[in-house]
């Protein structure tokens, strides 16, 4: 049920998101006044041509990427937390990002092993996105199969971590056989980066994220039923296998496509659903879906603003910022909210 309190929250969060979106575009190495940001976004000429260039070719794509990444990762975290009945589940913790890394490593580092035409075809952005989605899909399926045998919350996480180590070991082996240039490309990718995306890449990312979000939206009712556990959900007429497959597809597409373009970004998928659960004080996925979506965008925009350290020429890796925000949330969850954990 939508309560008036929730609607008020949705409106204010949307407003905050919009303000942060403008701020994210305005702040950075070169500060651009909000009025000018507004001007160039609405198609008018900004006072300086360089500002317009910076905004349209650098800051706007980055801000849009931040919103897509924040929304997509947070929703995939929400789906996983309900599906695994585990508040600590998330695309990073359960090794989905590592799976994507492996897929991307195969493409970036392994392309040289193939004939050059085939190699360059695979190393295109489509190749990377498909490899990344496949990687996360494989890890998620593997974790899911193992978790069927393990009822214990903690062991599922440990399994996820093991798959993570396994895939990174494999990546390590691949790096041994690759050239310095490929290695550099892969290292930069793995640090996480919201910028440097061309408009065409953003279009592909946006389409993938929207497909993932659409599948998640279709799963809202099944997710609510799953709050009672698998057996109750089945007794409520839920087609469990179909519902689970939809959820797995949604999470793999979201985590996979985002990781392909922005690199493995830590903790957003884990922390944001909890923030929205805490603020909205509900488990109803109809509310949480929109709440998580908005909070995901907001927090990712904040991380991006912080990472470009306004007024300086320093740009910190986005992964460092998300971890600084996310890791304490996990510790706080373990210590303070033990009641929700068991």
């Amino acid at each position: 049920m939508l309560k008036s309190k929730h609607i008020a929250l949705f409106i204010s969060l949307t407003f905050i998101m919009f303000v942060l979106f403008l701020l994210d575009i305005g702040l950075g190495q070169v500060s651009i006044p909000l009025k000018e940001v507004f001007k160039s976004l609405t198609g008018q000429e900004a006072s300086k041509e360089t500002w317009q260039y910076i905004i349209l070719n650098f800051r706007l794509p980055k801000a849009i990427t931040a919103i897509l990444v924040g929304m997509g990762l947070s929703i995939s975290g929400l789906l996983m937390q309900t599906m695994f009945r585990n508040p600590l589940a998330g695309p990073y913790v359960l090794g989905l990002s590592s799976g994507s890394s492996l897929g991307v490593a195969f493409v970036i580092l392994g392309a040289s092993l193939l004939p050059s035409i085939l190699g360059s075809l695979i190393a295109s952005s489509y190749g990377i996105i498909i490899a990344s989605c496949l990687g996360s899909f494989m890890v998620l399926s593997a974790v899911l199969i193992v978790s069927q045998r393990l009822r214990n919350t903690m062991s599922i996480l440990i399994v996820g971590m093991m798959f993570g180590s396994f895939t990174s070991a494999f990546v390590g082996v691949l790096t041994y056989f690759s050239t310095a240039e490929q290695l550099q490309k892969f290292t930069f990718w793995s640090l996480g980066n919201l910028g440097n995306l061309s408009w065409s890449s953003i279009l592909i990312l946006a389409i993938s994220v929207f497909i993932g979000l659409f599948l998640s939206l279709m799963s809202i009712k099944s997710l609510d039923a799953l709050l009672l556990g698998e057996n109750y959900a089945k007794s409520l007429g839920l087609n469990f296998k179909k519902a689970r497959l939809t959820i797995i597809f949604a999470t793999s597409i979201l985590a996979g496509s985002i990781t392909a373009f922005a690199g493995p970004i830590a903790f957003i998928g884990l922390a944001v659903p909890h923030i929205s659960k805490l603020v909205f004080q509900t488990s109803s996925h109809r509310v949480l879906f929109w709440g998580t979506l908005l909070f995901g965008a907001i927090i990712m925009l904040i991380c991006d603003i912080v990472s470009q350290v306004p007024g300086t020429s320093i740009i910190l890796p986005i992964n460092a910022i998300t971890s600084i925000i996310g890791a304490p949330v996990v510790i706080w969850l373990l210590v303070g909210k033990r009641k929700m954990m068991t």
């Binding site: 039923a225 009672l228 556990g229 057996n231 007429g237 488990s283 929700m340």
Partner: peptide, 20 residues
């Protein structure tokens, strides 16, 4: 079986019975 961790209220829990 015990219920998984969630924020469900009693009303919401009963309401889930209407899912079919």
């Amino acid at each position: 079986e015990s219920l998984p961790p969630s924020n469900l209220t009693v009303f919401e829990l009963v309401a889930l019975g209407r899912q079919p």
